[in-house]
Amino acid sequence: MFRYFVRRVLQGVLTFFGATFIVYALMFANQTDPLQALAGERPLPDNVRQALTERYHLDDPFIVQYGHYMRGLLTGDFGVSLTNRKISEMMSQAWPVTIRLAVLAMIIAVMISVTAGIISGIRRGGPFDTVTLVITLILLALPIVVLAPLAQLLFGIQLKWFPATAGADPGLFQLILPAAVLASLVIATEIRVTRASVAENLRADYVRTARAKGLSKRRVIGIHVLRNSLIPVVTLIGLDLGNLMAGAIVTEGVFNIPGVGFNLFRGIRTEDGPLVVGFVSILVIVFIVVNLVVDLLYAVLDPRIRYE
């Protein structure tokens, strides 16, 4: 367990530096005029230009610049947007909304996909399984840019079941439709992994043993099979977070939810470079940390890893 823990944490640190370096390099390396690139097409007044040069240490060599950037990240200083707002402040306002949305999406996704995945896995080839398989295919194929506006059109504007836009401080009800849209991004893979995992575990020798022990079918599946089947599903949730973040940019943009994704959405559209770099850096960090936590959770669930 300890060795696994140390190895995984070291890996996480390496990934952290590698990923942030790539993001930073993508943004600033080899630019003839990095500041103009940051600002996009809008004109850059001299005083802003000067402030930005200082801010990004553009007079220093690249690796020093990266060092300053890293120090900023690690001390919670993510810079200032072109509209002269502190990114950390914008972040702290946006996070609660996005976390609410993401948690709601996760709950919807896990509830649906685990239930459907287990039923499909047990009754493979049956009508429920076939229908589920077709639905997962369609969900896999629906890009978020299709799903979000269409869901808004259908359920928000035409059927009026849910509010079409969320507003400044959205409650749970306003978030249900966008959360369902986000959830459908990950439901398909989660169902498929659960199904495959349940099907595989049902064939395992230990299931025969459990039946030979005179356990009821409910207990064999609900305890012995389920516990084994959920291990790969849990690890998937970490990776899914990346999908959720990406999805949140479009979803929050479409539904006007003032979260992290919405800020990023607006930052991209207004070509606010510092804002984009700051937000993307934070999201990358969150993604890496969550995946690290999920991997450690994996060890808790699977004793074979815990005691390697």
């Binding site: 390496l14 990934t15 952290f16 590698g18 990923a19 790539i22 993001v23 993508l26 943004m27 990346g242 999908n243 973040m245 990406a246 940019i249 990023l264 991209i268 984009v276 770099v277 993307v280 999201l283 990358v284 993604f287 890496i288 995946n291």
Partner: peptide, 13 residues
């Protein structure tokens, strides 16, 4: 490392 960056975020940048 590349897997450590969510694709769409990196793609945006």
């Amino acid at each position: 490392i590349v897997l450590g960056i969510p694709t769409l975020l990196a793609a945006i940048v």
